[in-house]
Deep mutational scan, measured.
Amino acid sequence: MPEGSASLQLAVGDRVVYPNQGVCRVSAIDVKEVAGQKLTFVTMRREEDGAVVMVPEGKVLAIGVRKVASAE
């Protein structure tokens, strides 16, 4: 991610809310080559049905992904 860009610090195992998809758990953060460029992807699995969603790390905030609020 370019320096100075806002990002959401995620780790494998974090629970997040993905708008219009529901609650997901981060299952992987991997670098993949797409069209000759190396990009970091956040892979999330929906808790409702296990569907897998992959989002480029740089788009996580723009999409509206946020961490699940704690009970505290």
Rank of each mutant, 00 (worst) to 15 (best):
L61T: 11
S7N: 11
K32H: 12
L39A: 06
G22A: 04
R66I: 15
Q37R: 11
K67H: 08
M44E: 00
Q37L: 11
Q21L: 15
V60G: 05
D30H: 15
G50T: 02
G22N: 03
Q9H: 11
A51Q: 10
R45T: 13
S70C: 11
D14H: 02
V53C: 05
V55R: 02
G58V: 09
E57F: 15
T43C: 02
G22Q: 05
M44G: 00
E72L: 10
Y18K: 04
E48W: 14
R25A: 04
R46A: 04
V42T: 00
R15N: 03
E57P: 06
G36I: 02
Q37A: 08
G36Y: 03
V68K: 06
S27P: 00
M1L: 12
G36M: 02
L10C: 00
V60W: 14
C24F: 15
A69W: 06
V17K: 04
G13L: 03
M1T: 12
G4C: 05
V34D: 04
R25P: 00
G58Y: 15
R15C: 00
E57H: 09
R15F: 14
E33M: 13
V23R: 04
V26P: 00
R46K: 04
K67D: 06
V55A: 06
E72Q: 10
I63N: 09
G58T: 14
E48S: 15
V65M: 08
V31S: 06
Q37Y: 07
I29W: 02
V52W: 08
P56N: 06
R66A: 09
K67P: 08
I29C: 00
E33W: 14
V12K: 02
G50Q: 04
V52K: 06
K32C: 03
M54V: 15
E48G: 08
P56H: 07
Q21E: 08
D14E: 03
G4R: 07
R45S: 06
D14Y: 02
R45H: 10
C24I: 01
L39M: 13
G58M: 09
A71E: 11
R45L: 10
G22T: 05
Y18P: 01
S70M: 10
G50H: 04
V65A: 06
G4L: 10
T43V: 14
A62S: 09
A28H: 07
G64F: 08
T43R: 05
M1V: 12
E57R: 06
A6P: 12
S7I: 13
K59D: 15
A71Y: 09
V31N: 04
G58S: 15
A69L: 09
A6V: 11
G50W: 05
K59Q: 14
I63D: 15
M44I: 04
V17D: 09
K59N: 12
D30C: 07
D14T: 03
A11M: 12
N20D: 09
V42Q: 00
G50K: 02
L8D: 08
G50A: 03
V26S: 00
G58D: 15
Q9E: 09
T40V: 14
A28V: 04
G64T: 06
V52G: 03
V26C: 00
R15T: 08
S5Y: 11
Q21A: 09
D49F: 03
M1F: 11
S7W: 08
R45C: 01
S7K: 13
M44K: 00
R66P: 06
A6R: 10
N20P: 11
S70A: 12
V55I: 13
E48L: 14
I63H: 11
V16G: 01
S5P: 13
V17N: 07
V65I: 15
F41S: 01
D14L: 04
A51R: 11
V53G: 02
N20Y: 08
Q21V: 15
A71S: 11
V55F: 08
D14R: 01
S27I: 15
E3F: 06
R25I: 14
D49C: 01
S7D: 10
A62I: 11
G22L: 04
R46N: 05
N20F: 09
R45I: 15
Y18W: 12
E33T: 11
Q9G: 09
M54F: 08
G22S: 04
Q9D: 09
V55L: 14
V34K: 04
V68G: 06
M54Q: 09
M54D: 04
V12F: 01
E33H: 07
A51K: 11
I63V: 11
G58N: 15
P2W: 07
V16C: 00
P2G: 12
G50C: 02
E3Y: 05
V52S: 14
E72M: 11
A35L: 10
Q37V: 13
E3W: 05
D30Q: 10
K38L: 14
S5F: 12
G50P: 02
E33R: 06
R25V: 14
G36L: 02
R15K: 07
A69P: 11
K38V: 09
S70P: 13
I29T: 01
Q9C: 03
T40S: 07
S7A: 12
E47Q: 04
G36Q: 02
V53T: 05
P56V: 13
Q21T: 06
P2L: 11
A71D: 13
G13V: 02
V16F: 07
A51M: 12
G22Y: 04
V12M: 02
E72R: 08
A62T: 07
S7F: 12
M54Y: 10
S7T: 13
V34G: 02
Q21H: 15
V55M: 09
G4F: 09
G64S: 06
Q21K: 14
A28F: 06
P2K: 11
V12W: 03
V52A: 06
P19T: 04
E72A: 10
N20L: 09
P2V: 12
D30T: 14
L8R: 07
S5V: 12
K67R: 08
I29K: 02
M44L: 14
Q37T: 10
V16S: 00
L61K: 13
K32G: 04
G13E: 01
G22W: 05
Q37D: 05
E47P: 01
S5W: 10
V60I: 15
F41G: 00
P19K: 07
G22V: 05
N20E: 09
A69S: 13
E33N: 08
E48N: 09
V31C: 00
V26L: 02
G64Q: 06
P56Q: 10
G64W: 08
P19D: 07
D30S: 13
D30I: 14
E48A: 13
L61D: 09
A71R: 09
V42E: 00
V26G: 00
V65W: 04
V31A: 04
E3V: 12
V26K: 00
I29H: 01
V12E: 02
A69C: 13
V52P: 04
K59V: 14
F41D: 00
L39S: 05
S27L: 15
V34L: 06
F41R: 02
G13N: 04
L8K: 07
G22M: 06
V60D: 04
Q21I: 15
P2C: 03
P19G: 14
G4W: 07
E47R: 02
V23S: 03
A35I: 03
R25W: 11
P19E: 08
E48H: 12
L10N: 01
P19Q: 07
K38W: 13
G36K: 03
G50V: 02
E3A: 13
C24W: 15
V68A: 07
E72D: 12
L8Y: 09
P2N: 12
L61E: 10
V26I: 14
S5L: 11
P2H: 12
L61H: 13
Q9T: 11
S70L: 11
I29E: 00
E33A: 05
V23F: 14
P56T: 10
K67A: 07
E3L: 10
V53M: 14
T40N: 05
V68N: 05
K32L: 14
V31Q: 08
K32Q: 09
G58L: 11
T43G: 01
V65E: 04
A51D: 05
M54K: 06
V65Q: 04
R45F: 09
A69F: 08
E33P: 03
V17W: 15
V34T: 05
G22I: 05
D14I: 04
G58Q: 11
S27V: 15
G50M: 04
A6Q: 13
V31R: 05
N20V: 05
V16N: 00
L10T: 01
V16W: 03
K59L: 15
E72T: 11
A28L: 05
K67F: 10
S70W: 10
G58F: 14
S70R: 09
I63Q: 10
E3Q: 11
V52L: 14
T40H: 04
L8N: 07
Y18L: 13
V65R: 04
R15L: 15
M1Q: 13
E47Y: 04
A11N: 10
E47S: 03
I29G: 00
K59G: 07
T43N: 01
R66M: 13
A69Y: 08
C24R: 00
E3D: 12
L39G: 05
E48V: 13
I29P: 00
G13W: 02
K32T: 07
A62H: 07
A62M: 08
R25G: 01
P56Y: 08
G22R: 04
S27W: 14
E72N: 11
L39I: 15
A28N: 07
E3H: 10
G50E: 03
R66E: 10
V34E: 06
V17L: 14
D30G: 11
R46I: 03
T43A: 04
S5E: 11
T40A: 06
L39Y: 09
R25F: 10
A62Y: 06
C24S: 01
A28K: 09
V26Y: 01
V55E: 06
A11D: 05
V53Y: 15
V17S: 07
E72I: 14
D30V: 14
S5I: 12
V68Y: 07
A11S: 12
L61Y: 10
R25S: 06
R25C: 00
F41W: 14
P56M: 09
L61C: 05
A71G: 11
R15A: 05
V53Q: 03
C24P: 00
S5G: 13
E72W: 08
A69M: 09
G22P: 02
V34M: 06
G58H: 15
E48P: 04
L8G: 08
S27Y: 14
V23A: 05
V68H: 06
K59W: 15
S70N: 11
V65T: 05
V12Y: 02
M44H: 01
